[in-house]
């Protein structure tokens, strides 16, 4: 697993820079100050990668077993380092290049669609019924496994689904800032974002709870598989969560960019 400890945090730390470098500079609505912000992102990324790898080699040299600080260091750097680089360095740089990464423009003119969102089918009743029935099966399986000797703590993992179901419901109704002209493209973009977020949250909640429920059953039925299943299942949930977050951010950026472009076109003096 040594290769994983070196590779995983490095990739996570490089991701914000990769996304920023891959983003296009908006022709009309980019800002002049993007250069210094990009340079700050590059230096911060290089510094953190060097620190992470350097300390990792030091820990490998001084700690024989992969426990304690040696085990925690790559994960801590992947999470905290990523958060710092993404939110404090990459998002401002992206925002300078592209209005999609800036908060939506506050305007005294507010527009809203009269189409009720609870009828637009983001989460129709059959999806809810199927999801909760699946969750009930997981609860039953976990309860059985615990009664057969699986650790009680594993039941905490079932909280994944109710938590994410709440997120799904909120996403299905989240506000949509429209332009005064009521651009259909913008409305479609918000709807796609709502659908993807609501269904993604629900799916992630189900997969997360399923990993714990199946782990609980493996602990009883095939204990030798339980550890591997838990590790791979947890990693899969983490990966899916990361991809889901990235996809949501990109879709949100698209809606924000469309709004900024539409407002800019509408505010431009007519020839």
């Amino acid at each position: 697993m040594t290769w994983f400890d070196r590779l995983f945090p490095t990739l996570m730390l490089l991701m914000p820079l990769a996304i920023a470098l891959g983003s296009k500079r908006h022709e009309r609505l980019s800002r002049e100050d993007a250069g210094p912000l990009m340079r700050r992102l590059v230096w911060a990324t290089l510094g953190l990668v060097a620190l992470t790898i350097g300390v990792q080699f030091l820990l490998e040299a001084t700690h024989e077993s992969r426990t304690g600080l040696r085990a925690a260091w790559p994960v801590v750097m992947a999470v905290i380092g990523f958060q710092f680089l993404w939110f404090k360095r990459a998002v401002p740089a992206l925002g300078a290049r592209d209005p999609g990464w800036r908060p939506p423009q506050e305007s005294p003119v507010r527009s809203a669609s009269l189409a009720p969102r609870h009828l637009d089918g983001a989460l129709p009743p059959w999806i809810w019924v199927t999801s909760w029935m699946t969750f009930a099966l997981m609860v039953a399986a976990t309860a059985w496994a615990i009664s057969e000797g699986a650790p009680l703590l594993i039941a905490l993992g079932l909280a994944f689904f109710p938590g994410f179901a709440f997120g799904a419901r909120s996403s299905a109704f989240e506000p949509a800032t429209l332009d005064p002209g009521g651009s259909l493209e913008l409305q479609a973009s918000y709807r796609e974002l709502r659908l993807a977020k609501a269904r993604g949250f629900l799916m992630l909640g189900l997969v997360g709870s399923a990993v714990f429920a199946v782990t609980a059953v493996f602990v009883v039925v095939k204990p030798e598989y339980a550890v591997h299943w838990g590790a791979y299942g947890g990693a899969t949930v983490g990966l899916l969560g990361g991809l889901f977050g990235l996809m949501g951010s990109l879709m949100r950026a698209r809606a924000n960019r469309l709004l900024a472009e539409t407002l800019d076109e509408q505010s431009a003096p007519h020839a």
């Binding site: 809203a112 009269l114 189409a115 009720p116 969102r117 609870h118 009828l119 109704f173 989240e174």
Partner: peptide, 14 residues
């Protein structure tokens, strides 16, 4: 036709 809920319209218009 059903109009948006009070919560939806209030959130969209701020």
């Amino acid at each position: 036709d059903t109009l948006p809920t009070v919560r939806q319209l209030a959130a969209d218009l701020g």
